[in-house]
């Protein structure tokens, strides 16, 4: 797959680190097997450019790690409570950033978009109900007539 924001090494690094948080089991496939990574650009489209730059470097580096070294690294990153100085916030940032990226892709219900994905929400039995959205024609018209952004 191709991304507008991540290079191919970073994509591989994200798949490998995603498997650390989502290893899968007999019911659910792992992060890399799930195919949800193809939606990564939806997640990154409003992220600041220098954050994406840093993400590419980190994930590209991780793409070359053996999986057991990556597991060890992220385990260390997730136990950062007593680390000194700048190491603690840096490792916390890495842990939460990578967990956030992979888990948001996996646990957002995106399987509705493609039947090839694992039925994560069904298997979790997480099924909140919603009534039909109000079709707010009045507001639609008011926005169309009063928002300069609509004229661009």
């Amino acid at each position: 797959m191709k991304s507008k924001y991540l290079n191919s090494f970073a994509i591989r690094g994200l798949e490998k680190s995603g498997d650390v948080y989502i290893p899968g089991d007999k019911d659910l496939s792992s992060f890399s097997e799930s195919g949800f990574i193809k939606y990564i650009d939806r997640q990154l489209e409003n992220m600041e450019k220098d954050d994406i730059f840093g993400l590419n470097i980190l994930l590209s580096l991780f793409s070359f790690f053996p999986q057991n070294l990556l597991v060890w690294s992220l385990k260390m990153a997730s136990n950062s409570e007593n680390y000194p100085g700048f190491i603690k916030p840096t490792t916390r940032l890495i842990n939460m950033g990578l967990k956030g990226l992979s888990c948001s892709l996996y646990y957002s219900g995106l399987e509705e978009l493609d039947s090839s994905h694992p039925r994560v929400m069904d298997i979790m039995k997480w099924n909140p109900k919603s009534l039909d959205s109000v079709d707010d024609k009045e507001l639609t018209e008011l926005i169309k007539n009063n928002d300069f952004n609509e004229s661009l």
Binding site: L44, S108, D135, D136
Partner: peptide
């Protein structure tokens, strides 16, 4: 403008589109 006609359906989209810097700033 987000309102009942266009609220994002998936959490990944609401996080990305409805918050600064794509979700959470630490």
């Amino acid at each position: 403008f987000f309102y009942s006609n266009n609220y994002p359906k998936f959490d990944i989209d609401s996080n990305s589109q409805m918050y600064w810097n794509g979700g959470v700033e630490l």
